[in-house]
Amino acid sequence: MPTAVYAGTPVTVTEEGFYLDPDQWREDMAPEIARDAGIDVLTDRHWQVIMHMRKEFAGKGTGPTVRALGRTSGVSIKELYLLFPKGPAKLAARIAGIPKPRGCI
């Protein structure tokens, strides 16, 4: 598995850049991951989603889907796409340092 360096610390990530171990993540890494993904500044709204992703992962063992985020994060799906363009669930999971959401079957 590849290693990436964020905030001066090496972390293990997948080919797509998802953390394998959420415990390796620290808040000061998030802005660097975001810049890699093309998001220059993390606003309070971004952080609301990021912390929600981590809470959901801790409770359920997988990150939420976009639809679940729209219901539970306090941020509408439309705004989620503005904050995390293209794929909010995947992008927010990457920045929040949790594995790729499994989605549904």
């Binding site: 889907t65 639809r67 549904c104 079957i105």
Partner: peptide
Amino acid sequence: VDMPIKCP
């Protein structure tokens, strides 16, 4: 539209 659906 989105998952989950019956009989995917």
